[in-house]
Write a protein that binds this DNA or RNA. Structure first.
Length: 495
RNA sequence: GGUCCUGUGGCCGAGUGGUUAGGCAGAGCUCUGCAAAAGCUUCCACAGCGGUUCGAAUCCGCUCGGGACCUCCA
């Protein structure tokens, strides 16, 4: 078997063959840090975290680049934009870098909560104005851009004459030229399909840089072309992002990079699907977003409680990344229970000891378990099918629980299979899927609970159920469940 | 209007033409001082209508419904 990836460019699954093995270059469109991240933003970063983790698992040396879009026309919610052009004290004005810093920090915090691995390089748009200007100059020299009133536009019509504009998104240039939409600055463009490479900044615009065309700011697509080229070269392996970026963002990125570097920039385009809520896309313009801080705290009318970041990660991984995922409070509750069951079984598994006699185990069960485990690699190699991976783990769980509860004897599994289970669970759940326990580390509280466990065991041994129930009930009241296990042990968990 | 995707049981969702997806919820049983878990068993599907095929949730057509993109958007 070999890893197969669905390539948006060819609209089919292709065997993954890096340009320069074992090295892999991967660029993922990062967040625009003009506001707080919401649930919809979580999907691509968790999706590509899986891609990164799995490629690493396969032995590839991945350079993962994810940008921060911090250039543009930013205003903070609730603060008045008018102040920007007044002569008031500078501290009263909305300072773009202040917003950018605030929301970048919040984004990084959320990514840590989700246990995503940091990119190797996280370039910012504002840190690469020089590179962007150079790229625009190249496009002008090549004759594919034109300047109007201090703004520079990309000539899509000319590009389309010799290149395939629309190869990624399936757009037809003739159709694009016929759009009836009236957009700002449209009159400066030669054709409606053209897009801005550089925009002249109106006087009140506070994010502005000097350029050969006057003061202004970069267009919407050029940053990714410039930064991807700088860190991954003219042609690299993987470019990822949300499906909603396919057009015009990625289509335009291809055009820009192709003119500058004389080669199509990306071998495999990967796009994750969106998250919907009541069947509609969750997005700023729909006014239906749930911010990540609200998801975690439960402070939102649609949420009955806060949800652990791992619950959200698990929720996302239960669906294939190219399918839409419909959010609901009920679905999150189901995911939480599922993850809890999965994780408790995983912990139980690590505590199982092999049968001292170490027999061959039950042949049917051995075959079944090993079959389920062996199938996992194939699922991941089939375009990262995490949903199927998780389903197989759930099929192994009854066996683990049955052995733990002494319903089945330990001898039903060979020590070899048990060891393999432990290894595969660990590698997949923690390293490839990046899941973690829902409960925090306990520290001294854990030792206190162990004391209560021993007291309760003594009480039960003496049939002193008043004391044993009191311990369990009082702990339950403060949010800790203590359970009697079949093997005479007691377990507890916080919720 | 144009391009594309999609419609699976109470809910979420996986499905390569022929064998149980899985999770959550429901029902019964077992174990248990009680409880909670857990184990076993079980109910409930492939939008509709045609077609291809020995056989279709899976391929094709039509109808109806939902969605995405065409504008900043993960």
């Amino acid at each position: 078997m070999a890893l197969k990836i669905y390539n948006s460019l060819t609209r089919q699954k292709e065997v993954f063959r890096p340009l320069n093995p074992p090295y892999v270059g991967m660029y993922v469109c990062g967040p625009t840090v003009s506001g707080e991240s919401h649930l919809g933003h979580a999907r691509p970063y968790i999706t590509f975290d899986i891609v990164y983790r799995y490629l690493t698992h396969l032995g590839f040396k991945v350079r993962y680049v994810r940008n921060i879009t911090d250039a543009g026309h930013f205003e903070e919610e609730g603060r008045q934009a008018e102040d920007k052009i007044s002569k008031k004290a500078i501290l009263e004005k909305v300072e773009p870098m202040e917003l950018v810093h605030k929301y970048t920090s919040l984004f990084h915090w959320a990514m840590r909560q989700f246990n995503t691995i940091e990119p190797n390089i996280e370039p910012t748009a504002t840190g690469h104005i020089v590179e962007q200007i150079q790229m625009i100059e190249q496009i002008l020299e090549a004759g594919y851009g034109y300047e109007v009133n201090g703004s520079v536009y990309f000539d899509v019509n000319k590009y389309a004459a010799s290149h395939n504009y629309g190869e990624l998104s399936g757009r037809v240039v003739e159709d694009l030229l016929e759009t009836t939409r009236v957009l700002e600055g449209q009159d400066e463009k030669r054709n409606k399909a053209d897009f801005a490479l550089w925009k002249a900044a109106p006087p009140q615009h506070i994010m502005r840089w000097k350029s050969p065309w006057g003061e202004g700011f970069p267009g919407w697509h050029i940053e990714c072309s410039a930064m991807a080229t700088k860190y991954l070269g003219p042609r690299f392996d993987i470019h990822g992002g949300g499906m909603d970026l396919l057009f015009p963002h990625h289509e335009s990125e291809i055009a820009q990079s192709t003119i500058c570097n004389h080669v199509s920039p990306v071998k495999y385009w990967i796009h994750n699907n969106i998250i919907t809520i009541n069947g509609k896309k969750m997005g700023k313009s729909y006014n239906n977003v749930i911010k990540l801080t609200e998801m975690f705290s439960g402070n939102h009318p649609l949420l009955s409680q806060g949800f652990h970041p791992m619950t959200i990660r698990f929720f996302i991984l239960q669906t294939h990344y190219r399918s839409t995922l419909d959010f609901s409070n009920e679905a999150l509750l189901a995911a939480e229970k599922g993850l809890r069951r999965l994780w408790e079984a995983y912990e139980s598994l690590q505590n199982l000891s092999p049968d001292p006699a170490d027999g061959p185990g039950d042949p049917d069960l051995e075959l079944k378990i090993n079959g389920l485990l062996s199938a996992l690699d194939g699922f991941m190699e089939d375009d990262f099918n995490t949903a199927k991976v998780l389903a197989n783990f759930f099929e192994v769980i009854p066996t683990i629980n049955a052995i733990k509860d002494l319903v089945l004897p330990a001898s039903i599994l060979s020590s070899q299979t048990l060891l393999r289970m432990k290894e595969v669970f660990h590698e997949y759940l923690e390293n490839i899927l990046g899941l973690q326990s829902l409960t925090a580390e306990e520290g001294k509280l854990g030792e206190v609970l162990e004391l209560l466990v021993s007291i309760r065991k003594e009480a039960k041994a003496k049939k002193d159920f008043v004391t044993s129930d009191r311990i369990r009930n009082e702990l339950s009241r403060i949010g800790i469940d203590m359970k009697d296990e079949k093997n005479g042990q007691m377990s507890w968990r916080m919720h």
